[in-house]
C-alpha cells in the first residue's frame, strides 16, 4: 500500500516535470473551446473566406448548446483519445526497455502495486485534462449560446470519462507488452474497431463500451436513457478495465526485462 503511494507520487512528479500535467489540459481546453466559438462565428468565418452566397449564409443556424457539447465530445473522441494514448504509450514500455524497471523490481514492490499506481496517476492526469477541457467548453457554450442542464452535463461527463479511462487502461496494458509506438497503434485500432462496430451494428453492441460515448451524447441532447443499458455498459467497461489491469500486472511480473 505504502509502496503504491510512493510510486504514484513518483509518477505524478514525472508528469509535472515533463509538463504533461499542463499541456494536456491546455490542449483539451483548446479543443473544447474552439467548438462553441466556431459554431457562433461560422457565418463571419464563411463571409471572410469569400465566395459564399449571402443566401446560404442567412440559412445558417447556430446549433443548440447541447449539439455543440456533443460536437465537443466527438472532438475528444478523435484528438483527445489520440493525445491520451500517445502520452501514455511509454508509461510501462519506457521503463522496461529503458532499464529503470530493473532497479524497481528488485525492491519489495509487487508488479500489481506498480500497475495500480500507474493507473491512478494516468487517471488523475486524464480527469484533470478532461475535466478542465469539459468545464471550459461547458462554460463557453453556456455563455455564448445558451443554457445547458447541469445534471445532464455531469452525467455525460461521467459516461464519457469512463470511456476515456478504458482507452487509457488499454494503452497501459499494451504498453507492458509492446514498445511505445506499437502499443499506441494497437490501442487506437482496438478503440476504432469498437466504435465502428457500435455505429454499424448498434443493436448488436448495446453492451459495448463504445456505447458509452453515444450514451454521453444522448444524455446531453436530453434523451432519457434506459437505466439498465447504462448499468450494463458501465459494468462491462469496469470489468474490462479490471481484467486489463490484472493481466498487465501479471505480464509485467513475467517479463520485467526485455528479451
Amino acid at each position: 500500500m505504502r509502496s503504491t503511494w510512493i510510486f504514484y507520487r513518483k509518477e505524478m512528479l514525472d508528469m509535472s516535470r515533463s509538463f504533461k500535467l499542463i499541456w494536456i489540459p491546455i490542449v483539451f481546453a483548446i479543443l473544447g473551446i474552439t467548438q462553441p466559438i466556431i459554431s457562433v462565428f461560422m457565418p463571419e468565418i464563411l463571409e471572410m473566406s469569400g465566395g459564399v452566397p449571402p443566401e446560404m449564409l442567412s440559412l445558417y443556424e447556430t446549433p443548440s448548446s447541447a449539439m455543440v457539447m456533443v460536437q465537443v465530445l466527438s472532438q475528444y473522441s478523435t484528438m483527445g483519445v489520440l493525445i491520451l494514448v500517445l502520452a501514455g504509450m511509454n508509461s510501462v514500455s519506457g521503463e522496461r526497455h529503458g532499464g529503470t524497471a530493473e532497479l524497481i523490481m528488485v525492491r519489495p514492490i509487487s508488479s500489481f502495486s506498480i500497475m495500480i499506481a500507474k493507473w491512478f496517476a494516468q487517471c488523475t492526469q486524464l480527469l484533470i485534462a478532461f475535466g478542465f477541457g469539459y468545464i471550459a467548453s461547458f462554460y463557453y457554450t453556456y455563455q455564448m449560446i445558451g443554457s445547458l442542464s447541469w445534471t445532464s452535463g455531469l452525467a455525460s461527463f461521467g459516461l464519457y470519462g469512463l470511456w476515456l479511462i478504458l482507452a487509457m487502461t488499454i494503452t497501459l496494458l499494451f504498453s507492458t507488452i509492446l514498445r511505445g509506438a506499437g502499443a499506441a497503434f494497437v490501442t487506437l485500432a482496438i478503440l476504432a474497431l469498437l466504435s465502428l462496430l457500435n455505429s454499424l451494428l448498434p443493436t448488436w453492441f448495446t453492451w459495448s463500451p463504445a456505447r458509452l460515448s453515444s450514451l454521453a451524447a444522448e444524455v446531453l441532447i436530453g434523451n432519457t436513457l434506459s437505466v439498465s443499458s447504462v448499468i450494463i455498459c458501465c459494468l462491462i467497461t469496469v470489468g474490462i478495465i479490471v481484467v486489463c489491469l490484472l493481466s498487465a500486472a501479471r505480464l509485467l511480473q513475467k517479463r520485467v526485462l526485455p528479451n
Binding site: 514525472d14 529503458g98 532499464g99 529503470t100
Partner: peptide, 9 residues
Amino acid sequence: PQNPTFYGW
C-alpha cells in the same frame, strides 16, 4: 545491474 538507468528528471 551492468548499466543502471535512473529517471533523468
